[in-house]
Structures are given as C-alpha cells and as structure tokens.
Amino acid sequence: MNTAIDFKYLDEIGHNHALFEQTVARAQQLFLDGWIATIGLSGKDSGAASICLVEALRRAKTIKDDVGPLHVVTTNTTLENIVLHDYIMSLHNDVVEYGERNNLPIFSHELRPSLASQPIVEYIGRGKLLRTPETTARARDCAVSWKVEPMKAFLNGLTKQYQTDKILSISGSRDDESAARKSNLSKRNESSCTPVQTALGWSLALIKDWSLNDVWQLFSIVDDGDIESYSDNFHYMKKHYSAGNAGVCDLFAGNLAQNKSCGSRFGCFLCALNKEDLSLENQMDTDPKTYGFMRPLNDLRTYMINTLFDYNNRSTLGRKLSKDGYIKVGLNQYSLPYRMKLLQMVLTIQQEAYETSGNHTIDLIDYKELLAIQFAWSREGLSINLEWHSRFGMMW
C-alpha cells in the first residue's frame, strides 16, 4: 500500500497529532484502494480506531466520491457490561448522524448470537455448564460462540451483498494490550498497514503499534476540539473505564505516570473464565448510583460459580447414542430443577431492574428466549402446561 504522508506537516502539528495523522492517512488509502471496511466497536481501543477510520473516510470522499462504505458493528452477547454497551450503542447513533450530515456511507449494526447459541438459552435451556477453566477445553469458547460466529455470518452477508471479497475487518487490537494479544496478532501476521488473510477474512489492526497512553491522548485531543470527530461524547469512555479501574485513571492526556493505568477489561458477566469480574465490581463499588443496578447480575455469576460442582444440580440424562448403540451418561449438564431455579432468578432480576436501573434495562430473556427454553425442556420430557405459565409467565 502506497501512502503519502507529509512528515514536515506532521512535525509542525506535534507528536500527538502526528500519530493520529499517520493512522488516518493509512486508513484513507485503504478506502481509495477500494476496500469496504467494517470495524467492531466495543471499547476504548476500537473507539480510538473508529475515530481515525471515520476521519479517513471523510477525507477519502473529498478525493473520490464512491469510496466506502463503512460498517460499524457491535456484538451484543446479552451478557455485556450493560452501561458500557449502552454507551457504545450511543456512539453508533453519533456515527450514523455524522455520516448523514457529511454525506458519508456509514452503517450501524448490532449483532447477536443465534437464538440457539445465546448464553441464557444454552445455560438455562440446554443445561450447558457455566464456562470456566475447568469446564471448557478452549480458553476462547465464550468469544467464539457468542462473538466470532455472529461476525463471520455478518461478513459472509457483506460478501454476498457487495459481490466482492474485498471486505476488510479493522480492529483496535494493540500489541501493548498484553503479551497474549501481541502473540495472537503475530501468529495471524496482522499489520497496521497491510491487510492480511485471517480466519475472519481480510483483517487489519489499525492501531496495532499504539500505546495505551496514545489511545487516551486521542480522546483528550478530541475533547479539546483539536481534531474533528464523529462524536463529542468520548469523555464518557474515560468515566466508565475509570470506574472499572476503581476510580483511578492516571494514564491520559499526556501524563506518563503509570501508577494505575486506565486499562480495565470488560467481559461477559456469565463467562467465568476469570473467577471475578473485577471491572464490574469496581464500577459498582466506585459509583453505585450509576452501576449498582448490575449487582444482581454479579450475584448470579457468583451463585453459578459456587454451585458449579454441586453434583446434585447435574443431570444424568444421556444425550448421545454411540455407534455401538449405547447412550453415554455423564454429569456434564445442569438438571432441570436447577435450570428452573436459574430461570426464576433471571426473571426476578429483570423485573426488579425496571425499578432501579434508571435509563438502562436488563433484557436477558424475552419471549423468544423463553420459547427456546421451553422447547429445550420439552425435549427432556418436561410437560409444558398451565403450571409452567403460572410459575413463569406471571413474572413478566
């Protein structure tokens, strides 16, 4: 990829702006080269990448009218940190409005796992055990089932829609995030400059070489009005990450003191590959008014972890017939009574949240999920009758 960068100009506008300008120039060339771009928007790193990408599209369109489009994508596993997810979706609204004002082809998408693969349907419907290091052979099981597969389906849809394989997935992944992330980027040969083929198709890690400080500096530059951005609400990014970091965010706005860097990690609250969801717990303790309504979700996580190896909660129902005609019986699914208890707990959490969650809602189970659970239970011999509706239907 041949990207012309005026380094003299970059020196004049300063280091912070120079990194931004270099990144925008690379992304601008991608659009001019005919790539259709997607970006998964989920947090601080992808937020920083999105600012660069939207500005690149704006500049590319002044040179060539038919560039793009850009698809902004967020996957809702239904188990996301609710406040952060709602904030990310507000950025979707901002980027679409910005695109309309500036005649830019920008589209917003909220993806979900298929109904059968939704976590609540898996856990409560089919009795799949809570994903922990002891119950899953692959460390990325949660991400694969609930995020990667929906994204694959979405990208396949774009390929059919545009009749081209020149679809580029742009991420906010950075080497500086962790040794594991750096290793994975290296294994996939991902670059910040050149698209490469991965399991998801063509991919590019636009801010791969950025530091955590670079990310927060960009938000500060946007907040100060030094550069144009599609949203003026990025100060909320720091608020949410600071709360997830126990109220401390030393690393921002050029402050190089790294006493307690603002690098919180947010995950699905019912993916227990880590025993504790420290970012969520920090948020609730730091600002109960904003985040406290999510405490019952963390309590549900704790309950499921604590009861995971109570084998009275397991089913001995055989599910697979071997080639020799035998049915293998094991204790590797939740029992129906335990699943009923989980359903009652989740519906109670949802009902009570309407009174305490302010502008946010807890929507783990809707009617379609309830029907999927009902179908799964009926396959195991549970008679669905008036008792079912009286026990569960009245909780809506």
Rank of each mutant, 00 (worst) to 15 (best):
S90I: 12
H92E: 00
H92V: 04
V95C: 12
E97C: 03
Y98V: 01
G99Y: 10
G99N: 05
N102P: 06
P105F: 10
I106G: 08
F107L: 06
E110P: 07
S117C: 00
P119G: 14
I124M: 08
I124K: 03
I124A: 11
G125I: 05
G127R: 06
G127F: 13
L130H: 03
L130A: 12
R131W: 15
R131F: 07
R131K: 10
R138Q: 13
C142N: 07
S145H: 15
W146C: 12
K147S: 11
P150K: 02
M151L: 11
F154C: 04
L155C: 08
K160G: 05
Y162I: 11
Y162H: 11
K166A: 12
I167N: 02
L168Q: 11
G172H: 08
S173M: 14
R174I: 02
R174F: 01
D176L: 07
A179V: 14
L185C: 05
L185I: 05
N189K: 10
S191G: 03
S191M: 02
S192G: 10
C193S: 10
T194A: 05
P195I: 04
T198F: 13
T198I: 11
T198L: 09
T198D: 12
L200P: 01
L204F: 14
A205P: 01
A205N: 07
L206M: 14
I207A: 05
I207G: 09
K208I: 07
D209N: 12
W210Q: 00
W210T: 04
W210D: 01
L212F: 10
N213L: 12
V215I: 12
W216P: 00
Q217R: 07
L218F: 13
D223Y: 04
D224K: 12
